[in-house]
Design a protein around this nucleic acid. Structure first.
Length: 221
DNA sequence: CCAGACGTTGTT
DNA sequence: GTCTGG
DNA sequence: CCAGACGTTGTT
DNA sequence: GTCTGG
């Protein structure tokens, strides 16, 4: 699964790779992006083919939820069920998104301690995700939330965990975002990231505290 | 037709 | 043990 | 994902 | 929103 990640590259670089019209000023280096936080997400602007990067809350709230707060908010969606399950189905069809990232974390239990590992793709890339907008009945600003899609681990991640987030190569960005890409085609894009392009290293347990977001979170131990 | 459910991970 | 907040 | 909280009554 | 069960 994926419950923490990094996006440390400068906004300028993200703008270029994701082909954004505007500089995503909201995007600051994150060494410990965690669930429930506001995180930069790339999607298509309404009724447009133009891409935007906006803050969304990590933890999926479907639009039909009675309240925004209550209930379980999944941070992940399984590749195997994201297209068919009622929670994600509509978003998978119409509201796919990219979450810019350059590393993610998984934990290994060592006795009582939880040892985090940092896994990094070869270059700046993106998680595949789905988003939705929740609005209070009547009026109010919508709340945007998202979930990261997970799949089976590659051989680098497998010793530490039995799931890993789907990382998309930039070559797949356009097809993933396009709502005209049929479900079968979108599912085709969701492959485990190649192990030979990924590195793994155990890191400082300072990472474990979600309130701590600093470069020492990616410090090898 | 209406009512009710709809999640992931990890651990056991 | 289980839920909430970050 | 992990860390941290988790209660009532009465009094201020 | 959309599917399943009754």
């Amino acid at each position: 699964m994926c419950g923490r990640f990094t996006i440390t590259r400068p906004a300028r670089e993200v703008q270029e790779l994701f082909n954004l019209t505007e500089l995503p000023e909201f995007l600051q280096p994150r060494y410990n992006a965690a669930p429930s936080q506001m995180i930069p997400v790339v999607g298509l602007k309404p009724n447009s083919e133009e891409r935007g990067c906006v803050p969304m809350r990590w933890g999926f709230v479907p639009r039909w939820n009675k309240d925004e707060k209550g209930g379980f908010k999944p941070i992940n969606a399984m590749r195997e069920t994201v297209a068919t399950n009622g929670v994600f189905r509509a978003s998978f069809k119409d509201r796919r998104c990219l979450i810019p990232m350059d590393g993610f974390f998984e934990w290994q239990k060592v006795g009582k301690e939880k040892q985090p590992y940092l896994f990094r793709p070869a270059a700046l890339a993106a998680f595949a995700g789905v988003w939705d907008a929740w609005k209070a009945p009547g009026s109010g600003e919508p709340v945007f939330t998202f979930a990261v899609i997970t799949t089976t681990p590659n051989s680098i991640v497998e010793p530490v965990h039995n799931r890993m987030p789907v990382i998309l190569d930039p070559a797949c960005f356009a097809a993933w975002l396009d709502p005209n890409t049929p479900a079968a085609g979108a599912l085709e894009l969701l492959k485990p990231y190649p192990a030979d392009k990924m590195t793994a290293v155990p890191v400082n347990r300072a990472l474990n505290n979600a309130r701590h977001d600093a470069p020492d979170c990616i410090e090898p131990v």
